[in-house]
């Protein structure tokens, strides 16, 4: 009966249909097709230009803020050293990363915005500069976990023109039960686009659950809806007021059991110094 070789029993037992399950998209958040959070960018690395590693947020034309745990991992004895730089804290960080801004045009079919919206991508490259005190919570063989000062900036070789940056402003204390808006493309920090679609930016409201240690800036939050697409790794947390929004934190990765973000408030001086350094007349030579 078979015209060719009979199929192997194993393959016949594992046949699956290759349809993308779109019923889960609503759990990713709301697609930001109005470009409200266009300052939220995708972060990729050269070897995987279409695999989103994390999100970040533009805080000046040349500085993107993201989570240190997105770009660093605890040092392992067998780690290849070629493309990494050393931190005294025992982390290995990438030296370079790519940043892509995404802006959307008019949605053609409101029922399916993820697939029917024109997208424009602009890519930039830059130098990774983790917070000097960043310390991943290390496990012998585990991945990076959010630790102290879980922040890093990417200082871009050229200024971003496609979207305006967020402005850093003073903020009050974070309150438990306070509602924050978070935005991003990637979840869990493992090259997984939220919802599985390249270039689709989502946002959703989350609630502050606990401020762990105010001086360390680590804050636990609760996600709205089911925890299907966990935290927008590296993406921004905003406090939204009537006339403005304040960048209050950066979501950490490795937070599948405990969702946390890093409050930017304790690290404001470092952030300002990085922005000033990037704006200085002689930028550091790109390191190729």
């Amino acid at each position: 009966m078979d015209a060719g070789r009979p199929s192997t029993p194993a393959a016949r037992e594992t046949l699956e249909l290759g349809v993308t399950n779109t019923s889960l998209y609503p759990y990713a958040g709301t697609m930001d097709f109005e470009n409200r959070y266009a300052s939220t960018v995708m972060i990729t690395t050269g070897s995987q230009p279409r695999a989103v590693r994390c999100s970040g947020v533009l805080i000046s034309p040349r500085v993107v803020l993201t989570a240190g745990s997105c770009l660093c991992e605890p040092r392992k004895s067998a780690t290849p050293a070629s493309k990494e730089e050393s931190l005294g804290s025992g982390a290995s960080c990438l030296e370079r990363a790519s940043v892509t801004t995404v802006t959307y045009g008019t949605v053609l079919d409101k029922a399916f915005p993820e697939e029917t919206t024109p997208m424009r991508f602009d890519s930039y490259e830059g130098e990774v500069r983790p917070h000097p005190e960043f310390k991943p919570l290390s496990e012998d063989s585990g991945p990076a976990k959010p630790g102290h000062a879980d922040l890093a900036v990417i200082v871009l070789d050229e200024a971003v023109k496609s979207v305006p940056p967020e402005t850093l402003m003073e903020q009050g204390e974070l309150q438990v039960h306070e509602s924050l808006v978070m935005a991003g493309y990637a979840h869990d920090g493992n090259s997984q686009a939220v919802g599985g679609l390249y270039g689709v930016r989502y946002f959703r409201k989350n609630t502050v659950a606990q401020v762990l240690a105010p001086e360390e800036g680590r804050v636990l939050y609760q996600q709205q809806g089911p925890s299907l697409y966990n935290g927008y790794a590296g993406g921004p947390c905003f406090r939204e007021e009537a006339q403005r929004r304040l960048l209050v934190g950066i979501a950490s990765i490795g937070s599948d059991q405990e969702l946390s973000f890093t409050s930017v408030s304790p690290f404001r001086d470092w952030l300002r110094a990085e922005v000033r350094r990037a704006a200085a007349p002689t930028p550091p030579a790109p390191n190729h």
Partner: peptide, 25 residues
């Protein structure tokens, strides 16, 4: 589809080649 099984970068048109290994009725 995405570039690998269970990868999360779908939504872009991709192409590649392969050889027919079996045919059946």
């Amino acid at each position: 589809g995405p570039s690998a099984h269970e990868a999360q970068n779908g939504g872009l048109r991709r192409y590649g080649t392969n050889e027919v290994s079996a045919i059946r009725t």
